[in-house]
Design a binder for these strands. Structure first.
Lengths: 118, 118
DNA sequence: TTAAAAGTTAGCCGTATGGCAAAGTTTTTC
DNA sequence: GAAAAACTTTGCCATACGGCTAACTTTTAA
């Protein structure tokens, strides 16, 4: 039926989850939580060559998680607050459905217990 | 300071986010939301060779998102409800901090506005 | 008892990822 | 105007990812 492949699939979730699937990048996000920072300020916390570090910045930026602008020779990074929403929404939606399944299981177990008691 | 590299890093978040960073795997999770299914039942919805599909199942399982057991020749897959929690928690924590940052920004703008009004 | 069903294993392929060092560019500072 | 700062580009590396086909194993059904 291949529905997914038919629906003009602007897949924002995949790059978003992928961007978060690395400790360095999550640390960057966490660091930016307390305010904007330059690339080198961010990089100081990570024992990594700058080009390697920049790849992480790029990936976060391409996923929309952060933005950046350059003023003079320094590039400053900012969080993009709405970016995490799709991920949160997906997780919430699925968890809710799982919860529903658990509820149904619980209900079934209850019913079974009632039956076996009789 | 490299704190992260020192703290006996049971990184569950990275494989978890990585597992969700693929449409096929998210579809599997969604499909299992309405009940347990065998590998081939799940695979029917995806135009993909079985070995390729099994890799997705394996990755979900290694990330703890699903479990499976084999009865006879059929392997049945189940959701593992608590698995998504760490991802949700991380997103919630960060979003909250971002919200805080936004609040502080708003407060700052308000303060600035008050100053300029005087 | 053979044949089909349902996975599984092995091996190959091209691209992406996460790392590096070295050299280049643009600003800023002295 | 030279030198330092702050990236940026280039190019390399090993491993992981996401896909395939072909061949194999185990269970079930005819």
């Amino acid at each position: 039926m291949y529905l997914l492949s038919r629906m003009a699939n602007h897949d924002t979730l995949s790059p978003l989850f992928a961007a978060l699937a690395d400790p360095t990048r999550r640390a960057i996000v966490a660091a930016l939580g307390s305010g904007n920072k330059s690339v080198s300020e961010l990089a100081n916390d990570h024992d990594m060559a700058l080009p390697s570090f920049l790849k992480h910045i790029d990936k976060l930026e391409r996923a929309g998680v952060i933005t950046s602008h350059k003023a003079g020779r320094v590039r400053t990074c900012h969080l993009n607050p709405p970016a995490l929403r799709p991920a949160q929404d997906w997780l919430t939606r699925e968890s809710t459905r799982w919860g529903g399944a658990l509820d149904r299981l619980a209900a079934h177990l209850d019913a079974t217990e009632q039956e076996t008691k009789q």
